[in-house]
């Protein structure tokens, strides 16, 4: 039994990230509102960022910036590689979020709703009361 408790204590960070990931994943697949889906995707991404950053952590280590001086030999640096990868990933996350929000604004302009079901039904039937596109077509014909 102590073995299991040791594992939980040594790896509690992974449990936190899995919980965060589950929250984000649930928001992505269960919520109908498109903005909530984007928020869920962001929580999911944050869980993965934290996972990578925690992999790079070393007990007693400092930030990976070279130290000069008397104690330079004793300094332990944390692993710099995951930091670089996540700096890259954060930028991609910001870009995808921005494009997703812009698409949502256009969708709201077009269909007057953010609900996934309403949008899908409107797209399927092209009901004039939901779709700018269908109304335009009706005017044209």
């Amino acid at each position: 039994m102590t073995g299991i408790m040791d594992i939980v204590y040594a790896e509690y960070n992974y449990w936190i990230y899995v919980a965060l990931m589950m929250i984000g994943f649930y928001a992505m697949i269960a919520k109908k509102n498109l903005v909530k889906k984007v928020i869920g995707a962001n929580i999911f991404q944050t869980a993965i960022f934290l996972f990578y950053i925690s992999l790079s952590d070393i007990t007693g280590g400092t930030a990976p910036i070279i130290v000069h001086g008397d104690h330079a030999a004793e300094v332990i640096y944390t692993n710099p590689v995951p930091h670089v990868l996540i700096l890259t990933a954060i930028v991609v996350a910001v870009s995808t979020t921005a494009v997703a929000l812009a698409l949502i604004i256009r969708i709201y302009d077009e269909y007057g709703s953010l609900d996934e079901d309403v949008i899908l039904a409107a797209r399927r039937n092209l009901q004039p009361e939901f779709s700018e596109y269908a109304r335009q077509k009706e005017v044209d014909t």
């Binding site: 509690y12 992974y14 899995v18 990931m21 994943f25 269960a30 992999l55 070393i58 007990t59 995951p82």
Partner: peptide, 29 residues
């Protein structure tokens, strides 16, 4: 949806047992 999420989380936790401990200096990375 809840079932799928719990399945994914459980799978990750099961796989995560092999990961190095938090702050481990001897981790492969």
């Amino acid at each position: 949806a809840l079932f799928a999420v719990l399945l994914a989380g459980g799978m990750l936790l099961y796989a995560g047992q092999d990961l190095p401990a938090f702050g481990d200096q001897n981790s492969p990375a």
